[in-house]
């Protein structure tokens, strides 16, 4: 139902599956497989941004029903990723799509929102012991903030322990490296793939 983008009926279907005593982890696996297929269709240009977003909405509806039934063990396995839009930038479309994809892929996401100062990022990285920081930046005039965040992490003694991945309209791999990031992703699907590689999963 994820692939069919059936946002209106997925919650009911998940509920029915749970009432039939299907293992919640198996339901989650099926949903994740659906999101993977949506990602594949997006990359093949069979699906477009609105379909990707609607799949994310469908996943959220399903997850709301499923989450209370997941075992503590399953929840505990989730590795934390800190996600933020850099200071001075209030755009969150790309960031929010990435978050949905990361949650679907089994990560715990700490969303610091938009216009996020470096101090808040350092604090969150430390608090959650996150190994990956994903930064979104849509504006040319805010991309220098990526360097500021890198410096703040260095100053806090965390830079060597974390990987920074960036994405957004003005960026590419060359600029990402110039700004001190470790990696760049062209879109949310690519982002999940790169983050998995950075995490070694």
């Amino acid at each position: 139902m994820i692939v069919e983008l059936d946002v209106d009926n997925i919650a009911k279907s998940v509920q029915q599956e749970l009432e039939k005593h299907v293992d919640p982890n198996d339901v989650l696996k099926a949903l994740t497989a659906g999101m993977d297929e949506v990602g594949r269709r997006y990359e093949q240009k069979e699906y477009f941004l609105t379909e990707l977003v609607l799949a994310g909405e469908t996943m959220k509806e399903a997850f709301d029903v499923l989450k209370p039934r997941l075992t503590v063990k399953e929840k505990g396995k989730r590795k934390p990723i800190v996600v933020a839009t850099v200071k001075g930038d209030n755009h969150d479309i790309g960031k929010n799509i990435l978050i949905t994809m990361l949650v679907s892929a089994g990560f715990e996401v700490i969303d610091l929102g938009v216009d996020c100062p470096s101090e808040k990022i350092v604090e969150a990285m430390r608090k959650h012991d996150a190994k990956v920081l994903a930064l979104s930046c849509l504006l040319t005039m805010t991309m220098r903030e990526i360097s500021v965040i890198g410096e703040a992490l260095k100053h806090a003694g965390l830079r060597d322990k974390v990987k920074i991945i960036v994405g957004g309209a003005p960026l590419n791999m060359e600029l990402a490296e110039e700004l001190g990031a470790d990696d760049y992703a062209a879109d949310a699907i690519d982002g999940v793939r790169h983050i998995k590689a950075l995490m070694g999963v």
């Binding site: 240009k45 477009f48 941004l49 609105t50 379909e51 309209a169 062209a186 879109d187």
Partner: peptide, 12 residues
């Protein structure tokens, strides 16, 4: 569109 393509499908 945006950096990675169209907001919705060409058919839409």
């Amino acid at each position: 569109g945006f950096k990675n393509g169209l907001f919705m499908s060409p058919q839409n």
